[in-house]
Protein backbone atom coordinates (compact mmCIF):
# COMPACT_ATOMS: atom_id res chain seq x y z
CA UNK A 1 0.00 0.00 0.00
CA UNK A 2 1.20 3.45 -0.80
CA UNK A 3 0.13 6.21 1.54
CA UNK A 4 -0.38 9.65 0.12
CA UNK A 5 1.65 12.35 1.72
CA UNK A 6 -1.27 14.72 2.11
CA UNK A 7 -3.16 12.26 4.29
CA UNK A 8 -0.84 13.29 7.07
CA UNK A 9 -0.89 16.80 8.40
CA UNK A 10 2.58 16.96 9.81
CA UNK A 11 3.96 15.28 6.78
CA UNK A 12 2.22 17.54 4.32
CA UNK A 13 3.43 20.71 5.99
CA UNK A 14 6.74 19.80 4.41
CA UNK A 15 5.16 19.07 1.05
CA UNK A 16 5.70 22.62 -0.19
CA UNK A 17 9.31 22.54 0.84
CA UNK A 18 10.62 22.35 -2.70
CA UNK A 19 8.87 25.62 -3.50
CA UNK A 20 10.97 27.44 -0.89
CA UNK A 21 14.20 26.31 -2.46
CA UNK A 22 15.76 28.07 -5.36
CA UNK A 23 16.47 25.24 -7.71
CA UNK A 24 20.09 24.33 -8.08
CA UNK A 25 21.25 27.67 -6.72
CA UNK A 26 24.79 27.81 -5.54
CA UNK A 27 25.71 24.20 -6.19
CA UNK A 28 28.95 23.38 -7.94
CA UNK A 29 27.79 20.44 -10.03
CA UNK A 30 31.31 19.70 -11.25
CA UNK A 31 32.63 19.38 -7.72
CA UNK A 32 29.69 17.23 -6.67
CA UNK A 33 30.22 15.08 -9.74
CA UNK A 34 33.90 14.61 -8.92
CA UNK A 35 32.97 13.45 -5.44
CA UNK A 36 30.25 11.11 -6.67
CA UNK A 37 32.61 9.70 -9.26
CA UNK A 38 35.29 9.21 -6.62
CA UNK A 39 32.80 7.19 -4.58
CA UNK A 40 31.75 5.14 -7.63
CA UNK A 41 35.30 4.33 -8.71
CA UNK A 42 36.42 3.69 -5.14
CA UNK A 43 33.58 1.18 -4.68
CA UNK A 44 34.36 -0.47 -8.03
CA UNK A 45 37.96 -0.85 -6.93
CA UNK A 46 36.85 -2.35 -3.61
CA UNK A 47 34.59 -4.77 -5.49
CA UNK A 48 37.51 -5.74 -7.68
CA UNK A 49 39.77 -6.26 -4.67
CA UNK A 50 37.23 -8.48 -2.94
CA UNK A 51 36.75 -10.57 -6.05
CA UNK A 52 40.49 -11.20 -5.97
CA UNK A 53 40.63 -12.04 -2.29
CA UNK A 54 42.71 -9.01 -1.38
CA UNK A 55 40.37 -7.87 1.40
CA UNK A 56 39.08 -9.76 4.43
CA UNK A 57 35.62 -9.82 5.94
CA UNK A 58 32.80 -8.44 3.86
CA UNK A 59 31.88 -5.20 2.20
CA UNK A 60 28.70 -3.24 1.50
CA UNK A 61 28.98 -1.09 -1.60
CA UNK A 62 26.92 2.04 -2.17
CA UNK A 63 27.13 2.09 -5.96
CA UNK A 64 23.90 3.73 -7.12
CA UNK A 65 23.40 5.65 -3.87
CA UNK A 66 26.18 8.24 -4.33
CA UNK A 67 23.84 11.21 -4.79
CA UNK A 68 22.49 10.88 -1.24
CA UNK A 69 25.89 11.08 0.43
CA UNK A 70 27.10 13.90 -1.82
CA UNK A 71 23.88 15.91 -1.65
CA UNK A 72 23.57 15.73 2.14
CA UNK A 73 27.23 16.58 2.81
CA UNK A 74 26.87 19.60 0.55
CA UNK A 75 24.52 21.08 3.16
CA UNK A 76 26.85 20.59 6.15
CA UNK A 77 29.52 22.54 7.95
CA UNK A 78 32.84 21.03 9.06
CA UNK A 79 31.76 21.12 12.71
CA UNK A 80 28.57 19.11 12.16
CA UNK A 81 28.57 15.51 13.39
CA UNK A 82 27.93 12.55 11.13
CA UNK A 83 26.96 9.00 12.04
CA UNK A 84 27.03 6.46 9.24
CA UNK A 85 26.03 2.88 8.54
CA UNK A 86 27.52 -0.41 7.39
CA UNK A 87 27.30 1.02 3.85
CA UNK A 88 29.39 4.04 4.69
CA UNK A 89 32.23 4.48 2.16
CA UNK A 90 30.22 7.09 0.25
CA UNK A 91 29.56 9.09 3.41
CA UNK A 92 33.25 9.04 4.30
CA UNK A 93 34.38 10.14 0.86
CA UNK A 94 31.72 12.84 0.54
CA UNK A 95 32.78 14.15 3.96
CA UNK A 96 36.32 14.52 2.67
CA UNK A 97 38.10 11.53 4.18
CA UNK A 98 41.39 10.65 2.46
CA UNK A 99 41.03 7.84 -0.04
CA UNK A 100 44.42 6.37 0.84
CA UNK A 101 43.58 6.17 4.52
CA UNK A 102 40.22 4.53 3.81
CA UNK A 103 41.95 1.94 1.63
CA UNK A 104 44.54 1.44 4.40
CA UNK A 105 41.76 0.79 6.89
CA UNK A 106 40.03 -1.68 4.59
CA UNK A 107 43.34 -3.43 4.05
CA UNK A 108 43.86 -3.64 7.82
CA UNK A 109 46.99 -1.51 7.64
CA UNK A 110 48.51 0.45 10.49
CA UNK A 111 48.09 3.70 8.53
CA UNK A 112 44.32 3.32 8.38
CA UNK A 113 42.13 5.83 10.18
CA UNK A 114 41.53 3.26 12.92
CA UNK A 115 44.90 1.49 12.66
CA UNK A 116 43.22 -1.34 10.78
CA UNK A 117 41.14 -2.35 13.79
CA UNK A 118 37.80 -1.08 12.58
CA UNK A 119 37.74 -1.93 8.89
CA UNK A 120 34.83 -1.02 6.70
CA UNK A 121 32.06 -1.21 9.29
CA UNK A 122 33.76 0.53 12.20
CA UNK A 123 35.46 3.49 10.64
CA UNK A 124 35.51 6.87 12.33
CA UNK A 125 37.38 10.03 11.37
CA UNK A 126 37.15 12.27 14.40
CA UNK A 127 38.93 15.30 12.85
CA UNK A 128 36.02 15.40 10.39
CA UNK A 129 33.48 14.86 13.22
CA UNK A 130 32.64 11.61 11.50
CA UNK A 131 31.61 9.47 14.47
CA UNK A 132 31.77 6.23 12.57
CA UNK A 133 30.34 3.72 10.20
CA UNK A 134 28.45 1.07 12.17
CA UNK A 135 28.21 -2.69 11.94
CA UNK A 136 24.95 -2.96 13.88
CA UNK A 137 21.83 -2.11 11.89
CA UNK A 138 20.22 0.76 13.80
CA UNK A 139 23.18 1.01 16.17
CA UNK A 140 24.09 4.51 15.06
CA UNK A 141 20.65 6.04 15.57
CA UNK A 142 20.89 6.62 19.34
CA UNK A 143 24.53 7.66 19.06
CA UNK A 144 23.63 10.41 16.60
CA UNK A 145 20.79 11.36 18.91
CA UNK A 146 23.31 11.64 21.74
CA UNK A 147 25.52 13.82 19.56
CA UNK A 148 22.45 16.00 19.06
CA UNK A 149 21.95 16.15 22.82
CA UNK A 150 25.61 17.11 23.19
CA UNK A 151 25.14 20.03 20.77
CA UNK A 152 21.99 21.13 22.56
CA UNK A 153 23.60 21.00 26.01
CA UNK A 154 26.55 22.99 24.71
CA UNK A 155 24.23 25.60 23.18
CA UNK A 156 25.85 25.33 19.75
CA UNK A 157 24.27 25.68 16.31
CA UNK A 158 25.80 22.52 14.91
CA UNK A 159 23.69 19.62 13.70
CA UNK A 160 24.11 15.85 13.94
CA UNK A 161 23.34 13.91 10.78
CA UNK A 162 22.32 10.30 11.10
CA UNK A 163 22.34 8.08 8.04
CA UNK A 164 20.37 4.85 8.28
CA UNK A 165 18.63 2.47 5.95
CA UNK A 166 14.94 1.67 5.71
CA UNK A 167 15.76 -1.69 7.29
CA UNK A 168 17.02 0.06 10.43
CA UNK A 169 13.67 1.81 10.78
CA UNK A 170 12.31 -1.52 12.02
CA UNK A 171 14.74 -1.56 14.93
CA UNK A 172 13.61 -0.31 18.34
CA UNK A 173 16.50 2.15 18.36
CA UNK A 174 14.89 4.05 15.48
CA UNK A 175 11.69 4.64 17.40
CA UNK A 176 13.45 5.32 20.70
CA UNK A 177 15.83 7.78 19.04
CA UNK A 178 13.22 9.73 17.11
CA UNK A 179 11.09 9.92 20.21
CA UNK A 180 13.90 11.35 22.35
CA UNK A 181 15.02 13.77 19.64
CA UNK A 182 11.51 15.03 19.21
CA UNK A 183 10.71 15.22 22.93
CA UNK A 184 13.90 17.20 23.57
CA UNK A 185 14.03 19.23 20.31
CA UNK A 186 17.44 17.88 19.41
CA UNK A 187 19.29 19.18 16.34
CA UNK A 188 19.40 15.88 14.47
CA UNK A 189 18.89 15.35 10.76
CA UNK A 190 17.82 11.75 10.23
CA UNK A 191 18.63 10.69 6.67
CA UNK A 192 17.00 7.48 5.56
CA UNK A 193 18.59 5.91 2.51
CA UNK A 194 15.66 3.82 1.38
CA UNK A 195 17.06 1.35 -1.13
CA UNK A 196 14.00 -0.87 -0.61
CA UNK A 197 15.88 -3.98 0.47
CA UNK A 198 17.23 -4.81 3.93
CA UNK A 199 19.72 -7.37 2.72
CA UNK A 200 17.19 -9.51 0.82
CA UNK A 201 13.99 -8.41 2.54
CA UNK A 202 11.84 -5.94 0.65
CA UNK A 203 10.64 -3.20 2.97
CA UNK A 204 7.01 -3.63 1.95
CA UNK A 205 7.09 -7.28 3.03
CA UNK A 206 7.84 -6.25 6.61
CA UNK A 207 6.12 -2.87 6.75
CA UNK A 208 2.61 -1.58 6.01
CA UNK A 209 3.89 1.32 3.91
CA UNK A 210 6.53 2.14 1.30
CA UNK A 211 7.67 5.26 3.07
CA UNK A 212 9.78 5.54 6.19
CA UNK A 213 8.96 9.26 6.30
CA UNK A 214 5.45 8.42 7.43
CA UNK A 215 6.89 7.11 10.66
CA UNK A 216 8.37 10.51 11.46
CA UNK A 217 4.85 11.89 11.67
CA UNK A 218 4.19 9.65 14.66
CA UNK A 219 6.88 11.58 16.54
CA UNK A 220 5.84 15.00 15.27
CA UNK A 221 9.01 15.19 13.22
CA UNK A 222 8.81 17.07 9.91
CA UNK A 223 9.96 14.95 7.01
CA UNK A 224 10.49 15.10 3.30
CA UNK A 225 10.82 12.45 0.62
CA UNK A 226 13.40 13.21 -2.04
CA UNK A 227 14.58 11.56 -5.24
CA UNK A 228 17.81 10.04 -3.99
CA UNK A 229 19.04 9.57 -7.55
CA UNK A 230 19.16 13.32 -8.13
CA UNK A 231 22.03 15.02 -6.36
CA UNK A 232 20.62 18.52 -6.78
CA UNK A 233 17.26 17.59 -5.30
CA UNK A 234 18.97 15.89 -2.37
CA UNK A 235 21.23 18.88 -1.81
CA UNK A 236 18.39 21.41 -2.07
CA UNK A 237 16.22 19.58 0.43
CA UNK A 238 19.13 18.83 2.73
CA UNK A 239 20.12 22.49 2.75
CA UNK A 240 16.61 23.57 3.69
CA UNK A 241 16.22 20.88 6.34
CA UNK A 242 19.65 21.47 7.86
CA UNK A 243 18.98 25.20 7.98
CA UNK A 244 15.71 24.54 9.79
CA UNK A 245 17.42 22.25 12.32
CA UNK A 246 20.21 24.76 12.87
CA UNK A 247 17.61 27.31 13.90
CA UNK A 248 16.78 25.07 16.85
CA UNK A 249 13.33 23.84 15.95
CA UNK A 250 14.12 20.19 16.57
CA UNK A 251 14.83 17.15 14.43
CA UNK A 252 13.82 16.42 10.85
CA UNK A 253 13.83 13.35 8.65
CA UNK A 254 14.84 13.17 5.02
CA UNK A 255 13.94 10.01 3.15
CA UNK A 256 15.94 9.54 -0.03
CA UNK A 257 14.50 6.97 -2.41
CA UNK A 258 17.48 5.20 -3.86
CA UNK A 259 18.80 1.86 -5.04
CA UNK A 260 21.96 -0.11 -4.60
CA UNK A 261 23.11 -1.34 -7.99
CA UNK A 262 25.14 -4.15 -6.37
CA UNK A 263 24.04 -6.86 -3.99
CA UNK A 264 23.86 -6.34 -0.23
CA UNK A 265 27.37 -7.60 0.39
CA UNK A 266 30.07 -9.45 -1.48
CA UNK A 267 28.21 -12.77 -1.57
CA UNK A 268 24.77 -11.79 -2.81
CA UNK A 269 23.31 -13.35 -5.98
CA UNK A 270 20.32 -10.95 -5.80
CA UNK A 271 17.69 -13.69 -6.14
CA UNK A 272 15.12 -11.49 -4.40
CA UNK A 273 14.83 -8.83 -7.10
CA UNK A 274 14.37 -8.87 -10.83
CA UNK A 275 16.90 -7.90 -13.45
CA UNK A 276 14.15 -5.69 -14.95
CA UNK A 277 13.85 -3.75 -11.72
CA UNK A 278 17.61 -3.35 -11.57
CA UNK A 279 17.68 -2.09 -15.11
CA UNK A 280 14.90 0.44 -14.44
CA UNK A 281 16.87 1.89 -11.56
CA UNK A 282 20.14 1.86 -13.46
CA UNK A 283 18.43 4.10 -15.99
CA UNK A 284 18.23 6.64 -13.15
CA UNK A 285 21.99 6.44 -12.47
CA UNK A 286 22.78 9.64 -10.55
CA UNK A 287 26.17 9.98 -12.22
CA UNK A 288 24.69 9.78 -15.72
CA UNK A 289 22.25 12.52 -14.75
CA UNK A 290 25.08 14.71 -13.48
CA UNK A 291 27.11 14.07 -16.60
CA UNK A 292 24.19 15.18 -18.77
CA UNK A 293 23.95 18.42 -16.80
CA UNK A 294 27.67 18.98 -17.00
CA UNK A 295 27.82 18.38 -20.73
CA UNK A 296 25.68 21.47 -21.19
CA UNK A 297 28.65 23.43 -19.86
CA UNK A 298 31.77 21.41 -20.58
CA UNK A 299 32.95 19.27 -23.47
CA UNK A 300 33.14 15.50 -23.66
CA UNK A 301 36.89 15.85 -23.65
CA UNK A 302 36.86 17.82 -20.42
CA UNK A 303 34.54 15.27 -18.81
CA UNK A 304 36.81 12.46 -19.92
CA UNK A 305 39.73 14.29 -18.38
CA UNK A 306 37.87 14.44 -15.07
CA UNK A 307 37.14 10.72 -15.25
CA UNK A 308 40.75 9.87 -16.01
CA UNK A 309 42.13 12.01 -13.21
CA UNK A 310 39.75 10.55 -10.60
CA UNK A 311 40.52 7.05 -11.83
CA UNK A 312 44.26 7.55 -11.54
CA UNK A 313 43.88 9.16 -8.10
CA UNK A 314 42.02 6.04 -6.91
CA UNK A 315 44.70 3.75 -8.34
CA UNK A 316 47.54 5.80 -6.86
CA UNK A 317 45.81 5.88 -3.48
CA UNK A 318 45.39 2.14 -3.48
CA UNK A 319 49.00 1.56 -4.48
CA UNK A 320 50.16 3.79 -1.65
CA UNK A 321 47.84 2.12 0.87
CA UNK A 322 49.00 -1.35 -0.15
CA UNK A 323 52.59 -0.37 0.57
CA UNK A 324 51.65 0.43 4.18
CA UNK A 325 52.66 -1.57 7.23
CA UNK A 326 50.76 -4.50 8.65
CA UNK A 327 50.06 -4.23 12.38
CA UNK A 328 52.34 -6.09 14.77
CA UNK A 329 51.23 -7.92 17.91
CA UNK A 330 51.57 -4.75 19.96
CA UNK A 331 49.19 -2.90 17.63
CA UNK A 332 46.71 -5.73 17.97
CA UNK A 333 46.85 -5.83 21.76
CA UNK A 334 47.06 -2.21 22.84
CA UNK A 335 44.37 0.44 23.19
CA UNK A 336 41.59 -1.67 24.67
CA UNK A 337 41.33 0.92 27.43
CA UNK A 338 41.83 4.66 27.21
CA UNK A 339 44.17 6.19 29.74
CA UNK A 340 42.43 7.59 32.76
CA UNK A 341 42.44 11.15 34.06
CA UNK A 342 44.46 12.08 37.12
CA UNK A 343 42.60 10.96 40.22
CA UNK A 344 40.57 13.64 41.86
CA UNK A 345 38.87 13.64 45.21
Amino acid sequence: MKAQADEFDIFSTMGDLAGKVEEGQGFDILEMYKTALTIRLFEEKVDWLFARGKLGGTTHLCIGQEAVAVGVMEALRPDDYIVSTHRGHGHLIARGAEITKIFSELLGKREGYCKGRGGTQHLSVMPLNFLGTNGITGGGLPIATGAGLSIKLSGEDRVAVCFFGEGASNQGTFHESLNMASAWDLPVVYVCENNMYAMSTRFTKVSRFDDVALRAAAFGIPSVIVDGMDVVKVAENARTMVHKVREGTGPVLIEAKTYRFCGHSKSDARVYRSREQESEWKDKDPLVKMEATLLEKISHGELEHVRRSVKSMIEDSYTEAERGADPDIKDAMEGVYAEREALIS
Binding site: V83, A144, G146, A147, G172, T173, E176, S177
Partner: peptide, 18 residues
Protein backbone atom coordinates in the same frame (compact mmCIF):
# COMPACT_ATOMS: atom_id res chain seq x y z
CA UNK B 1 11.78 7.88 28.39
CA UNK B 2 11.65 4.16 29.17
CA UNK B 3 14.12 3.42 26.39
CA UNK B 4 17.17 1.73 27.91
CA UNK B 5 18.69 0.94 24.51
CA UNK B 6 17.96 4.42 23.23
CA UNK B 7 19.20 6.47 26.15
CA UNK B 8 22.26 4.27 26.67
CA UNK B 9 23.10 4.84 23.00
CA UNK B 10 22.47 8.55 23.41
CA UNK B 11 24.84 8.49 26.38
CA UNK B 12 27.47 6.86 24.16
CA UNK B 13 27.01 9.63 21.58
CA UNK B 14 27.20 12.24 24.31
CA UNK B 15 30.36 10.76 25.80
CA UNK B 16 32.01 10.46 22.37
CA UNK B 17 31.47 14.19 21.88
CA UNK B 18 33.08 15.52 25.03
Amino acid sequence: PISEGGFTGAAVGLSMTG
